[in-house]
Design a protein around this nucleic acid. Structure first.
Lengths: 213, 213
DNA sequence: CCATTAACATGAGCACTACTCATGTTTGAG
DNA sequence: CTCAAACATGAGTAGTGCTCATGTTAATGG
């Protein structure tokens, strides 16, 4: 797996207002097109056309097609983390069950409403490592969820917690992907099953506030 | 997700000996190249060149690039099911734990030894539905594992069992993918975690026929 | 044995892609 | 106003997936 290191990155950050608008419009067009034709049939020309932006400008912001999709994944991820963080802080559910409930429901809600979310998730097919160099995307999410989880459930905030969260995220990702493959709105049975997996694993894995071991 | 129905399928099955050899050589070359350059950089021309087969012949067997990779996934899946079935029948481990142990270990073993297995798994990135029309690949695996599981664990062989297996497979797939992303030979900690997830979920989900609970 | 037909093999060529880069346009400091 | 640095543009380039007319081999029947 020897990927070219210069691939899949951003190129220049938009600084002026007009540029930033274009940047955002490109991501919107990309998301829309992903929903319509899927990842493999996505063409940069069509994305640029829909965004009303010449093709050369697209390549000023994004190094290549993967970079474009990766930037969309990053935007999705930031949005997801923002929403989850906000809900958790406001509702402050206690215990693992509450945390699982909120996180899964928020994911499902985004999957239903955010264009292109189903295709790119937090990292497009075949590519990882788009968010933070050296970590795959789900691990980056796990890192961000760690502190949040620790404060809410009372478990110790250590590397074991992060391991458990990374594992949990992979499971959730897989099962929810299946849920939406089975049913356009997300098969409710599978969504429930997803929560069950997470609860049984995390409850057995993490010891609550009580001292370690 | 409006995929062209004629996409990603086989075209003509090789019937003569020479053709079958070429078919197999194409899959081998495909697997090799996948390991070297990854899915997105895989070119049909190079696959054909390595297999010593003209490009036109490749397209006699496979409808397109996806069909080629899909056929490789199918071969991997058949091989996996064969190996798991054989081991389960010979060793006849009892209980869920034994089943999980064998299945995960066999997957890990293949991931370490079979060329290209890490990239295509049982279904390449972005594409599903390559094995049986209307079912995604992991569901097809679940169907094949169902009877096997029922006879070994004594749980009832019904749709609930299949649901649980589909969910379990998605989780295993995700966590093991992570394990091999983290470590080239498969992070042992994550492999252990994978078994833990499956055990805790399946034990809570399935009621044994001979309950020692 | 040959004649006829169907199945298979081949690779130059076509349509289309991702991406570049020379040229034109805007911006802003002095 | 001057002048150069930063940004915008889209025709062009190299290379892809895939086709299909033409040639070759095998199967069948008498």
């Amino acid at each position: 797996m020897n990927q070219d290191r210069t691939t899949g990155t951003r190129r220049r950050l938009p600084v002026q207002k007009r540029s930033l608008e274009r940047f955002e419009r490109l991501l919107d067009a990309c998301a829309e097109l992903l929903d319509e034709v899927g990842y493999s049939a996505l063409t940069t020309k069509e994305v640029a056309r829909r965004a009303g932006v010449p093709i050369g400008t697209l390549y000023q912001f994004f190094s290549d097609r993967e970079g474009l999709v990766g930037a969309l994944a990053t935007r999705n991820l930031e949005s997801f983390l923002g929403r989850v963080t906000e809900r958790l802080e406001r509702e402050a559910p206690d215990g693992i069950a509450g945390l699982v409930e909120v996180t899964v429901d928020e994911f499902v809600a985004m999957r239903r409403t955010i264009t292109g979310f189903g295709v790119v998730d937090f990292g497009a097919a075949g590519q990882d490592h788009t968010l933070e160099p050296g970590r795959d995307n789900n691990s980056a999410v796990a890192g961000r969820l760690r502190a949040l989880t620790a404060s809410l459930t009372g478990v110790e905030d250590d590397t074991e917690l992060e391991l458990a969260l990374r594992v949990a995220l992979e499971c959730a990702d897989g099962v929810l992907q299946l849920a939406f493959r089975t049913h356009p709105k997300g098969d409710p049975q599978l969504i429930a099953e997803c929560k069950r997996v997470l609860n049984s694993y995390l409850n057995g894995r993490l010891r609550m506030a009580s001292p370690r071991r």
